[in-house]
Design a protein around this nucleic acid. Sequence first.
DNA 1: CAGAATCCAAAACGATACTG
DNA 2: CAGTATCGTTTTGGATTCTG
Lengths: 124, 124
Amino acid sequence: MTAPASPSLPTSPPHSCPVTTTVAVIGGKWKAVAIYHLLGGPRRFSDLQRRMPGVTQRMLTLQLRELEADGLVHREVYPQVPPKVEYSLTPLGLTLEPIVRAMLAWGAAYRERDTQSGQSDPDA
Amino acid sequence: MTAPASPSLPTSPPHSCPVTTTVAVIGGKWKAVAIYHLLGGPRRFSDLQRRMPGVTQRMLTLQLRELEADGLVHREVYPQVPPKVEYSLTPLGLTLEPIVRAMLAWGAAYRERDTQSGQSDPDA
DNA sequence: CAGAATCCAAAACGATACTG
DNA sequence: CAGTATCGTTTTGGATTCTG
């Protein structure tokens, strides 16, 4: 969600459909993927970035912050000399697992559709 | 997907993660909701629009066309005096049901989280 | 009714440079 | 390492008008 402070117009009418609510929360371009990788356990920022080819530092930061603001992701800062930040799913964030797993399965099947060389990326 | 013809740069690297593929296909602001309503059977354009408060005619058209281009939605035009167009899910589009249902359930639960007045919209 | 077309505002996104 | 800041581009989306 991360309310845009509604400057003058409603971002969306009191969205009637729960599906819309979900889209608002995990609809970002990289949110679902980030959550997917966090399902494997806590990850450092650079770790996530490496696992998400194509995402820029800026976008990853922004999307993670929104997820944090919506209570799905926890951000743990370790005050060290080379800074270390670990992201992990909150209990609420964990409840997204069914959705993300379904998206993973569907995406894989959709590719096989005409790519006849099915392959997954079962990471740790 | 609806490839942007990649003018000079890759919209995304041969996206490694299947989740990214799914996001590319149903990641639009209104796509998931539209698909949800189409799970209830074929719907006319105006019907969909009425069920999706906040969507503009233009956006609904655009998103439906993309879904059509990606093979998820079928568009049937009835050559009548007052034009009638019915949208329905293709077999492939139907395979999205698990995802959309999961999104529906999650969105509803997410709202109850602090809205203590749970309500669904079980349409036809 | 179901759109296509045009115009324009706002949001998303990318590249780059700088910092504790 | 993990950002933040700034700038410019691209995409998205809305309002409105016109049409078969």
